[in-house]
Design a protein around this nucleic acid. Structure first.
Lengths: 185, 185
DNA sequence: GTCGACATGTAAATTGTTACATGATTTA
DNA sequence: TAAATCATGTAACAATTTACATGTCGAC
């Protein structure tokens, strides 16, 4: 079986796709978003963003073009780019994402706004919440078994993690209610 | 002015230093820590860990040696390694760390356990808390100004961030009390 | 007219990922 | 004895950081 050269789409690539799907941006505009907003930990350095845009263009996921009423060319998603983004958004929430990539899960949720249906969003949040519950229970089990044997600083740091996940769990509950009550246009 | 070849110590390097300062470990043991515990987002791949250990050995920050009552050689910190780690731990908490690297700040706090004094820990937490307060106020200001103009998903994601920082703030308060009441040995 | 922000890029060095390779030791 | 885990590494590749380079445009 011949091995096909697989061009990967990285997390940064998806972040860019999601950003310009909401609003077309110049390369510089994308960099500013990563630099100045609380979007996640994506690199705003030109040496990361411009090569990423090249990759995405080569893959046919974005194009740089002049829009009506605009002076400057900006990047926007192609239909293929939108599809790629949707597939990413619809990937099931794994417990490993919950443990290590909560911020990516939240970014995905933000990008879903106009791309997925109300039902898909609710399914995402429900599954997020379910994985969170499992993970929190694991952490609590560890805490009651071995918590007292940890050094003070270590135990406190661990409890910070636990508190953070509990906050996210509560947020899920609230977000589910908010999406459910929201008028679908 | 001649430019001196600067060997950088990366975040992964510090994480390794901190780990083996708590307990000497083999390269494999370090990998397992990153893979199986909730320590942060450090790479457990051999292609990251072993080259990092080479770097640290070259810098004279760690050594691999046989300890008493042990069959296998393990890595541990040299005095220079401990100093390097302490300098890192004592670095002032910047608002940018609070915004983008809370997990690193918590890892540092965990590593402080036996390395810093009670007063230094309290100073760290106090400064962490102060920067958090500033950042949270910035976020709240943004929320009341522009929150209503955000799409629902974006606003909810933003509110997740806010809730997370608030949780960390409360944790700081609690951790300060816990450290303060703790008997210094 | 110059300062700062807008705007796009490149090159070198470093770092990390993925996949492979190897062998020892433990355990079922 | 076969499988799983311990243990250490390398090679090819992909990605990122850092630093540099260049030029436009509007404000003051």
């Amino acid at each position: 079986m011949k091995k096909v050269k697989q061009i990967k789409t990285t997390s940064l690539d998806y972040a860019i796709l999601g950003l310009i799907q909401q609003e077309p941006l110049s390369g510089y505009g994308i960099r500013k978003q990563f630099e100045t907003t609380a979007i996640g930990n994506y690199s705003s350095s030109p040496g990361a963003v411009y090569p990423a845009l090249d990759r995405l263009q080569k893959l046919g996921l974005v194009v740089k073009s002049l829009l009506e009423n605009q002076k400057k060319e900006k990047f926007r998603c192609t239909p293929k780019g939108i599809d790629t983004l949707k597939i990413w958004l619809l990937q099931p929430v794994e417990i490993n994402d919950v443990a290590k990539n909560v911020d990516v899960l939240l970014l995905k949720f933000a990008f879903m706004d106009t791309l997925l249906t109300k039902e898909q969003k609710l399914e995402y949040l429900t599954s997020f919440q379910k994985q969170l519950k499992i993970y929190i229970e694991q952490l609590k089990a560890f805490h009651s078994e071995e918590g007292s044997s940890l050094p003070l600083n270590g135990r406190l740091a661990f409890e910070h993690g636990l508190a953070g996940y509990s906050t996210t769990y509560k947020w899920c509950k609230n977000a589910i209610a908010a999406i459910r009550n929201h008028q679908e246009k």
